[in-house]
Nucleic acid binder design. Structure first.
Length: 475
RNA sequence: GCUCCCAUCGUCUAGCCCGGUCCAGGACAUCGCCUUUUCACGGCGGUAACAGGGGUUCGAAUCCCCUUGGGAGUACCA
């Protein structure tokens, strides 16, 4: 039987990095096992779900490289892949449970429910103790429903202990009597998570459920449903959660938590993928910079960390920098272009752009940093006086360099100089003016850029328009 | 409260299942040095952890128990 795993996102917000991480694990496991990765949209919460969020999440998933084998946009054998389009199915199964005496209509009022729940908490009794769970009231309930009254359907929880084997936790046991009869079909006809999730996973033949640890307790309820409906129980892997620096659940105040934001901030999808993958899972050889193709074969459900991981952007940035550094200049340029607004940059030749991008390729961690480098190192027309510049200008050799550069610059009538031009100017200063070493190099840097640091002059200066060089030197 | 889960450097983690090879290894961050006549990249090195207490054992980060701390769930949300 081939492996089938799924991501079941709720379109109630943008794709969260925590969900992206479980998506990554599912995806990787599918690749490793040569199985299928499925996306099923769980939009049964009418209040909060929107098409726009669904669209956004699908785009972000795609951006991350998590191509689904089956999804709403690419339906397979078990369509539809959106729960709001599968409502009849849930009704049928709820009816089946009703018919078999495994579920019942509940007519308790909110007040009654409230009292029960408080009593349950203080006295440790079963959470639902309403009279409707008793078979003697079922006929009455059915006729009220037949007469048009609305009521939720609750699952009649068996009084027994459950347990399951989890890939990351080992054997997990739940004692009897800990959950009350929970709602499976709301009075508005919509199914609840624990119910439709099981129905779909079973009908869509999922073999492994890889999800967040926040679902471990739900597994108890789901196990009951699997059993009641006589479905095959899949294998489970409950992955630890991501938390913030203050060890609280990751939320907005911990900074950026949506994939979309990282995308807009100039992170590479493969870097986010790489980092998220490493939060809670480790490569057998402890590799830490990779693309999914590199490690899919090494992926397994047995190398998950059991404890929570604190999300730390510093390492993400470093990994992003590594991926930028390892990229072909051509490809990098394609990725960088959308992050640059500067018109000057876009009006340059491709050679110029390639040269510029390569010059900063190993100095940058985020795509958007390239933009600021243009103004910082290329597009300025006057040399700001600073202590660093003053020091260089104070050397007795510097004015000589300055005079020579001015004279040479005056002869140039092209838009840019060539690296060879700079070479010959330097050679002149070296041979004729006997300037060498630090005064030579730093002198040129100071005179041409006004700085005592920066990228390789022989690339930088040819990238700078001659008109600007002239203005800086007052030619 | 009740149920489930977790606990190695500041952070991500290896090691734990199958005790000795671990006075605990790697990575990020940090500090220092080298390299680059600058900056960055890179290289080398330093600081830095087995939550606490009991067992078991010749021997425990590894096995057992307790304590403490943390997380999750406890909805007609998912």
């Amino acid at each position: 039987m081939s492996v089938r795993v799924r991501l079941a996102p709720s379109p109630t917000g943008n794709l969260h990095i925590g969900n992206a991480r479980t998506a990554i694990y599912n995806f990787l496991f599918a690749k490793k096992m040569q199985g299928s990765f499925i996306i099923r949209v769980e939009d049964t919460d009418l209040e909060r779900s929107t098409k726009e969020f669904e669209q956004n999440q699908m785009e972000d998933l795609k951006w991350l490289g998590l191509q689904a084998d089956e999804s709403p946009a690419n339906p397979g054998e078990f369509a539809p892949y959106r729960q709001s389009e599968r409502l009849e199915l849930y009704k049928d199964y709820a009816q089946k449970l009703l018919d078999e005496g495994k579920a019942f209509y509940d007519f308790c009022s909110d007040e009654e429910l409230q009292i029960m729940s408080e009593k349950a908490k203080s006295e440790g009794t079963s959470p639902y103790t309403g009279k409707w769970k008793k078979a003697e009231h079922w006929d009455e309930a059915k006729s009220r429903v037949a007469a048009g009254e609305k009521a939720p359907i609750r699952f009649l929880v068996p009084d027994k202990a459950y347990s399951f084997k989890d890939y990351v936790r080992g054997e997990v046991k739940f004692p009897a009597g800990m959950v009350g009869d929970f709602v499976i079909l709301r009075s508005n006809g919509m199914p609840t998570y624990n119910f439709c999730n099981v129905v779909d996973d079973a009908l869509q033949k999922m073999t492994h459920i890889i999800r967040g640890e926040d679902h471990t307790n739900n597994t108890l309820r789901q196990l009951m449903i699997y059993e009641a409906l006589d479905f095959d129980i899949p294998e489970f892997a409950h992955v630890s959660l991501l938390i913030g620096e203050d060890r609280q659940k990751l939320s907005k105040r911990h900074g950026v938590t949506s994939v979309r934001q990282y995308r807009e901030d100039g992170y590479l999808p493969e870097a986010l993928f790489n980092y998220l993958c490493l939060l809670g899972w480790s490569h057998p050889e402890e590799k830490d910079v990779f693309n999914w193709q590199d490690i899919a074969n090494d992926f397994s459900l047995t190398r998950f960390s059991k404890s929570h991981a604190i999300y730390d952007v510093e390492k993400l940035k470093w990994i992003n920098g590594q991926h930028i550094k390892n990229m072909e200049a051509e490809e990098l340029l394609q990725k960088v272009r959308p992050f640059i607004k500067n018109e000057f940059f876009h009006s340059q030749t491709k050679e110029w752009q390639l040269s510029f991008v390569s010059l900063f390729q190993d100095k940058v961690q985020l795509l958007k940093e390239f933009e600021s480098k243009i103004n910082e190192y290329v597009l300025f027309e006057s040399l700001n006086s600073s202590s660093e510049l003053d020091e260089i200008m104070g050397w007795e050799t510097t004015p000589q360099i300055q005079d020579h550069v001015k004279a040479e610059l005056a002869k140039i009538d092209t838009d840019f100089i060539q690296a060879e031009d700079l070479d010959s100017w330097m050679n002149y200063c070296k041979k004729e003016l006997k300037i060498k070493g630090k005064p030579l190099f730093m002198g040129f840097r100071g005179v041409l850029t006004g700085m005592n640091h920066g990228p390789d002059l022989k690339v930088l200066v040819p990238l700078t328009p001659v008109s600007l060089l002239k203005k800086r030197l007052g030619v």
